[in-house]
């Protein structure tokens, strides 16, 4: 456990030492600010024109789909590419492989670091949108905030699956550019497929990014919940085991 934690701290240190990850958090916060600013202009304009009140200030719940579907998957792909493909291509992985840590722990710690970054990103968006709402929008009730918090926490599970999938692809890529290309292309395809074959939306793991919607409000029947949990567990186990085995056999 100590070696896993040491490895996690190292992967986290490597990730945040790259300035681009901090820049992306700032971009995320700026998007929220801009969104809020625009909504103020639009609502001001609507008030002067027709006298009706509209409020488009982002709430934690309205901001979540935007970040969850586009920016966070992109950042997860970038993180695993940097920590797996780029390190392998630059021959830097040796620095950690020669240390007293089992390979599966090293692999797991890379996923943990990327997921921690995604969680931090979500936390920043949550706080920013909640504060903006208190200042410019309608005051959110404690219950609304709690439900939003639950939704944000729930998204970490499908994001963990997405990270495990991305890490598996990153192990096969020979360069950072190729890995990013493969990941973005496959992500677009996985999102587009259910439009043409609706039956796939229940099977593909990318559909579960929005699963927080199923857990808030009226819960689905126990059978459906069990079915969903089994699919999610199956994907997580398959991607992590396959990636871990591949990483274990890789030679550097």
């Amino acid at each position: 456990m100590a070696s896993l934690m040491a490895s996690f701290r190292n992967e986290w240190a490597k990730l945040i030492a790259r300035k681009k990850y901090l820049v992306f958090i700032i971009i995320g916060l700026l998007i929220c600010l801009l969104w809020s600013g625009l909504s103020q202009i639009i609502s001001g304009f609507a008030r002067t024109q027709g006298g009706f009140n509209i409020n488009l200030t982002p709430t934690p719940m309205t901001a979540l789909p935007l970040f969850l579907q586009i920016l966070i998957p992109f950042l997860i792909f970038m993180g695993v590419t940097d920590l797996i493909t780029v390190e392998g291509a630059d021959n830097n992985l040796k620095a950690m492989l020669c240390r007293p840590v089992e390979r599966w722990k090293l692999y797991a710690s890379k996923l943990m670091a990327v997921l921690t970054y995604a969680a931090l990103y979500l936390a920043c968006v949550f706080v920013m949108t909640a504060v903006l709402n208190q200042v410019f929008g309608k005051q959110l009730s404690a219950n609304e905030l709690f439900m939003a918090l639950v939704s944000y926490a729930l998204t970490l599970i499908p994001l963990a699956i997405l990270s495990a999938y991305a890490a598996l692809v990153a192990l096969m890529g020979r360069s950072g550019t190729l890995t990013m290309f493969l990941l973005l292309l496959s992500y677009m395809l996985l999102n587009a497929l259910p439009f043409f074959f609706p039956v796939l939306s229940e099977i593909l793991f990318t559909s579960y990014l929005r699963w927080y919607r199923l857990w808030i409000g009226a819960l689905p029947n126990p059978g459906k919940m069990l079915h969903m949990l089994l699919i999610v567990t199956g994907y997580a186990t398959t991607f992590f085991t396959a990636g871990s085995l591949l990483f274990d056999r890789k030679e550097y």
């Binding site: 190292n10 240190a13 030492a17 830097n92 620095a95």
Partner: peptide, 17 residues
């Protein structure tokens, strides 16, 4: 095997953990 975007001290601290 060194991490170029980090300092000498950071590289050593990572190994020390």
């Amino acid at each position: 095997a060194l991490y170029d975007h980090m300092t000498a001290l950071q590289n050593l601290k990572m190994a020390a953990r």
